[in-house]
Amino acid sequence: MATETEPTDLKSVPNLKISRSENPEIELSFEEVENLHVFDQMGNKIRFGDTYANQKTIVVFARHFLCYMCKEYVEDLAKIPLNTLKDKNVKLVVIGCAPWKFIKHFKQETGYQYDMYCDPDRNIYKCLKCKCEANHTRKVVNKHIKSNALSGILKSTWRAMQFPNEWQGDPSQMGATFILGPGSTVHFSHLDGNSADQVAINDLLIEAGCDTVDFEKDQRVLHV
């Protein structure tokens, strides 16, 4: 008589296949990824796996902090009410590729109050196969981006002038989004194809089992 198969312990799986949108699956060594490190706004070194070890976590890998599309997306992430995440025991983490000293300023600019870290050497980005070349042939409608190209570039230029001759991340680096944890469980993955290819925030919340957010103050993202 057949017996019911025990569920696989994902922590024991050395290589997990992660789907990235319309692209083929990729293989990565989860043990390698979770043992890499990020930095908090005080420069403390934190094991990446510890950021999602104890609860389901939405992890957004941002582009450089001077990217106006990245900034406006994080501004909308900041609008997610704490109880929306807390009620479902979900955590939100943003990771940038800028030096850690820019975290505090970027959080002030965006109003983002959840966890934020930096991977300035982009070791985790590389391990997760995040793209460094934008695919502009794919049309993307991202309602979280409020500025047009001209006004967005002007805003980014003005922000860059506050820290002259300092890079806030590699401009060629694309972002990504994962829902991870607890432990080594992967619930969702998406590697951005270009700078506007972020996952709609309410789609992310649904994937994480959370209620959606009503962006009532901005009709452009009301039904995102």
Results as ranks from 00 to 15, higher is better:
Asp119Pro: 01
Asp119Thr: 01
Asp119Arg: 01
Pro120Arg: 04
Pro120Ala: 01
Pro120Asp: 05
Pro120Glu: 10
Asp121Leu: 10
Asp121Lys: 14
Asp121Trp: 07
Asp121Cys: 07
Asp121His: 09
Asp121Ile: 07
Asp121Val: 05
Arg122Glu: 11
Arg122Ser: 14
Arg122Ile: 00
Arg122Met: 10
Arg122Trp: 06
Arg122Tyr: 04
Arg122Val: 01
Asn123Arg: 10
Asn123Val: 03
Asn123Asp: 02
Asn123Phe: 05
Asn123Cys: 09
Asn123Ile: 02
Asn123Ser: 05
Asn123Thr: 05
Ile124Asn: 02
Ile124Gly: 08
Ile124Trp: 03
Ile124Tyr: 08
Tyr125Ile: 01
Tyr125Ala: 04
Tyr125Asp: 03
Tyr125Val: 02
Tyr125Glu: 04
Lys126Thr: 07
Lys126Cys: 03
Lys126Ala: 13
Lys126Arg: 14
Lys126Phe: 04
Cys127Thr: 07
Cys127Trp: 01
Leu128Thr: 02
Leu128Asn: 02
Leu128Tyr: 02
Leu128Ser: 03
Lys129Met: 06
Lys129Val: 00
Lys129Ala: 07
Lys129Gln: 14
Lys129Pro: 00
Lys129Gly: 00
Cys130Leu: 14
Cys130Val: 08
Cys130Pro: 00
Lys131Ile: 06
Lys131Asn: 09
Lys131Arg: 15
Cys132Thr: 09
Cys132Asp: 12
Cys132Glu: 11
Cys132Ala: 09
Cys132Ser: 13
Cys132Phe: 15
Glu133Thr: 08
Glu133Leu: 15
Glu133Pro: 00
Glu133His: 15
Ala134Met: 09
Ala134Gln: 12
Ala134Thr: 09
Asn135Trp: 02
Asn135Cys: 07
His136Leu: 15
His136Tyr: 15
His136Gly: 04
His136Val: 09
Thr137Ala: 14
Thr137Cys: 12
Thr137Arg: 15
Thr137Pro: 00
Thr137Met: 15
Thr137Tyr: 15
Thr137Val: 12
Arg138Leu: 12
Lys139Ile: 13
Lys139Gln: 11
Val140Trp: 02
Val140Lys: 03
Val140Gln: 05
Val140Phe: 10
Val140Ile: 15
Val141Thr: 11
Val141Ala: 13
Val141Gly: 01
Val141Cys: 12
Val141Ser: 11
Val141Pro: 00
Val141Lys: 15
Asn142His: 14
Asn142Ile: 08
Asn142Leu: 12
Asn142Arg: 10
Lys143Phe: 14
Lys143Met: 08
Lys143Gln: 11
Lys143Tyr: 13
His144Pro: 00
His144Met: 12
His144Gly: 14
His144Ser: 13
Ile145Trp: 03
Ile145Arg: 09
Ile145Cys: 07
Ile145Leu: 09
Lys146Asn: 07
Lys146Trp: 05
Lys146His: 05
Lys146Cys: 07
Lys146Met: 07
Lys146Val: 05
Lys146Phe: 10
Lys146Ser: 12
Ser147Gln: 10
Ser147Arg: 10
Ser147Cys: 03
Ser147His: 07
Ser147Val: 04
Ser147Tyr: 08
Asn148Gln: 06
Asn148Ala: 05
Asn148Trp: 07
Asn148Ser: 06
